[in-house]
Simulated scan of single mutants.
Amino acid sequence: MSIKVGDKAPDFTLPKQDGTPANLKELLQKSAVVLYFYPKDDTPGCTKEACSFRDSYEAFKDAGAEVVGISSQSAASHEAFAAKYRLPFTLVSDEGGKVRSQYGVPSTLGLLPGRVTYVIDRDGTVRHVFNSQLNATRHVTEALNIVKQLTGKTAN
């Protein structure tokens, strides 16, 4: 069952790229969260998506949201990926795909882990879901527009 707009986002605690825990409930105490599931570190589409989030990161922060990327690679893989592309946001390791399953992120052709972005307000309610395996950079545009609508803040 997929998480839809209006649903409560399932809470999770997963290791960040530096090995420390990231907890969704704690993140939401500070800001809205843009949670994006992506297939794999350092692949062409995922790198393009991550760099697009990186390039818009200040706009997300100005609009009142934190960006969190999530995939099944290890924290060490995330750390190398983040360092290579100077990613300023958190990447969390969902080894085994438990959180991916809780959110109901579909696979593409039954093989590739899906690419889905959720915008979650500070109350933990999902306000937007965007699912597109091939249009990686559109995830950033969609999410930023929704965050601006939610928070009433305009980003620079």
Rank of each mutant, 00 (worst) to 15 (best):
M1R: 14
S2P: 15
K4M: 12
G6N: 12
D7F: 08
D7E: 08
A9T: 01
P10G: 13
D11F: 05
D11S: 03
T13C: 02
T13S: 14
P15A: 11
K16F: 07
D18S: 08
G19Y: 07
T20L: 12
A22Y: 10
L24H: 06
E26R: 10
Q29W: 07
K30R: 14
K30G: 13
K30V: 03
A32K: 04
V34H: 02
L35Y: 00
F37T: 03
P39G: 00
P39W: 04
P39I: 00
K40V: 07
D42M: 11
G45S: 12
G45M: 08
T47G: 04
A50L: 06
C51Q: 13
C51W: 07
C51M: 12
R54S: 01
D55L: 08
D55N: 13
S56G: 09
E58M: 11
A59R: 11
K61R: 14
D62R: 10
A63W: 02
E66I: 03
V67M: 09
V67F: 06
V68T: 03
V68Y: 01
G69A: 04
S72W: 05
S74E: 08
S77D: 13
H78F: 01
E79W: 02
F81C: 10
A82Y: 01
A82N: 11
A82I: 06
K84N: 14
K84Y: 08
K84H: 10
Y85I: 05
P88G: 12
L91D: 00
L91G: 12
V92K: 02
V92E: 01
D94L: 05
E95P: 04
E95D: 14
K98Y: 00
V99P: 04
P106E: 03
S107V: 09
S107W: 07
L109Q: 13
P113Q: 08
G114C: 08
V116K: 00
T117F: 04
V119H: 01
V119M: 05
I120R: 03
D121Q: 07
D123A: 15
G124S: 03
R127W: 07
H128V: 07
V129H: 01
V129D: 00
F130I: 08
N131R: 11
N131A: 14
N131E: 15
N131G: 11
S132D: 15
Q133C: 08
L134W: 10
A136S: 13
A136L: 05
A136P: 02
R138Q: 15
R138P: 09
H139V: 00
H139A: 04
V140R: 01
E142N: 12
A143G: 03
N145E: 15
N145M: 10
K148V: 08
Q149W: 00
L150H: 05
L150Q: 03
T151Y: 01
K153M: 11
K153R: 15
T154G: 13
T154N: 15
N156Y: 06
